[in-house]
Design a binder for these strands. Structure first.
Lengths: 331, 331
DNA sequence: AAAGGCAATGTAAAGGTTTACATTTTTGCG
DNA sequence: CGCAAAAATGTAAACCTTTACATTGCCTTT
């Protein structure tokens, strides 16, 4: 790897001039610019991003961090895709870490972000009160929370109207005549879980239907827990005639449980999941879902972060995107 | 952010001593070690990974790069998971980039890897002859190719026995009595596509069945192309009675096409896909697949990389894992 | 008690940039 | 042509580590 010094020698200029050429500073006359460019090309020079980042003040280090709870969840993968597209378009590289919904791991990676001097971090916080994230934010690191919101600080946020999505889904079930609607809710300390649950409850209330605690189970957003909890709910009598499942993986799990019990969907039990899946059409039956615009969430978050890097003094932005009910054949 | 200097001042020692404490060098007496540790705790000191990486020679920078063609493909997501687990266990951070099967993007990210001074890179090369990857390898960067193999250099590799997997799948179809078996193959310049195709052809040949070019279509590994090509194949007459699809997303696409044509699976057309899916059970019908041990691939690759960082002079390692046919209801 | 040896600690350079400030070159104008 | 101002370029410090080498201080040995 050749360095600034090598280029400078070859072009017979000082390293400052080379640096200026690289950074498209205007203060360099055409002739030298060309000479330096030539030297760089001949040497195949690539600026060392590490050295650059060490020196450079925040905002222009061209590196952002993304911490996701689970890369195998298509919802988060889609967010990653959105972030990446914006990052790439702006010549940013992205450090992606997987927190596994594990506070220790999240804390470790937040430290890495700081120690790596990333320009900013995008993440869905692992809990509504997430001290580690708050601490990092306090230290001045630009942070954008996505999907889930954070309590206790005003931070740039992109979220989806979870209440609305859940409300519409349950309302749809009610319109179809369902009166006993089960809920498989997500992890309790997440804003999304709370909002979706509220949507469920209020939709029932609006239709003057009772909210029965025995029809509500709380899962951990994993497929296995969806399977187990759906199995429990469907073993009750009277059995719920419909299930609203608060996340995509648990919805797939619920579907598996339904198949194992050999129940007919939607005749014997209807099902609506939260989050779309690229293969929702190919499921048995094609799954009705509340589709979150995950790609847009990622895009918007990345754009929000870039905007903040441009001007730290901006007030905290808050974007709430609308989900959409996609009716297929599971209800 | 406090620095070495701050800690040194507070502990009344030199920065060298602090550095030695951090790096667990033995040359520091217990009393000072404790004092330094105290100062670090009080200041909440975190070593600056950037500065450290700038100074440190290769192999101990605790950063590795992973470049994946498509993070939304569950197969690659699972690989990422395997890599991440090993990385985390060894206190490595991981830069994940998405090449989108796009050579320009891949080249860009390979440059980033070099410019970021990562210790090594794990990736499935975008093509069998991938000049950009070869160049980086030549420059001395430790590289482990996964899934797909690379032509023209001896590089650490973890792959799956694609030939074997495809052979078994097609053999299985033949045993079930199928004589007209269609193939939806993957992108032509990938080793995986070639090997799987060869498995298909040889399994047919072994059963003395003809390899008919009109039953073979080449896709781009995306869902849409699987759908389109399956549609084409199923419009032929005589129509193939079984399809072997060379990747997971295309298999889902094929399933969609089959549903659209209202064909019964497996009675009217049987289907086997390559790569398992976490929700394969919930598909209509549950999909028979050749399961690749993707998580293991990731793990093994990361371990291989770490081993190489420990000793650069090791001969190139080559690991070939076995896939497994998982029979469900689609054939 | 002096000298030698060894362990602990300190000093300073190096790694590749960016950038404030200093210096040189060019330009414009009388 | 000469001078001032502006533009271009250069010098050196700073960013935060690690580490080779130098120094200090203590213990052992004779």
């Amino acid at each position: 790897m050749s360095s600034l010094t090598d280029v400078a020698k070859r072009a017979q200029v000082s390293i400052a001039t080379v640096s200026r050429v690289i950074n498209h500073s205007d203060k360099v006359v055409e002739k030298t610019r060309v000479a330096v460019q030539k030297a760089m090309d001949e040497l195949g020079y690539q600026p060392n991003r590490v050295a650059r980042r060490l020196r450079q003040k925040g905002g222009r280090r061209h590196l952002l961090g993304l911490i996701l709870p689970d890369i195998q969840n298509p919802f988060f993968a889609e967010i990653a895709r959105g972030v990446e597209d914006v990052a790439y378009a702006n010549q940013f590289a992205m450090i992606l870490c997987i927190s596994d919904e594990n506070p220790t791991k999240e804390a470790f990676y937040l430290n890495v972000m700081q120690a790596e001097s990333v320009d900013g971090v995008i993440l869905p916080p692992i809990a509504e009160r997430d001290a580690a994230v708050l601490k990092l934010a306090q230290s001045g690191m630009p942070i954008v929370t996505v999907d889930r919101t954070l309590h206790g600080a005003s931070i740039d946020t992109v979220e989806v109207d979870n209440f609305q999505g859940a409300y519409e889904a349950v309302e749809h079930l009610i319109k179809l005549g369902h009166k006993r609607i089960g809920l498989i809710a997500g992890r309790a300390n997440l804003s999304t879980s709370r909002d979706r649950r509220r949507g469920y409850e209020e939709a029932l209330a609006a239709a003057k239907l009772p909210v029965r605690p025995e029809y509500i189970r709380v899962g951990d957003n994993k497929q296995a827990s969806g399977r187990g909890l759906a199995d429990e709910l469907l073993s009750l009598s009277p059995r719920p005639t419909a299930l609203f499942v608060s996340n995509n993986l648990m919805a797939v799990g619920a579907l598996e449980a339904i198949h194992m019990k050999k129940l007919k969907v939607p005749q014997e039990v209807a099902l609506i999941g939260f989050d779309d899946l690229p293969w929702a059409e190919a499921l048995d039956p094609p799954l009705t879902v509340v589709r979150q615009p995950a790609y847009e969430v990622g895009r918007a978050a990345a754009e929000m972060l870039l905007k903040r890097l441009g001007d730290r003094s901006l007030p905290a932005a808050w974007l709430r995107l609308r989900p959409r009910l996609i009716v297929r054949n599971s209800c």
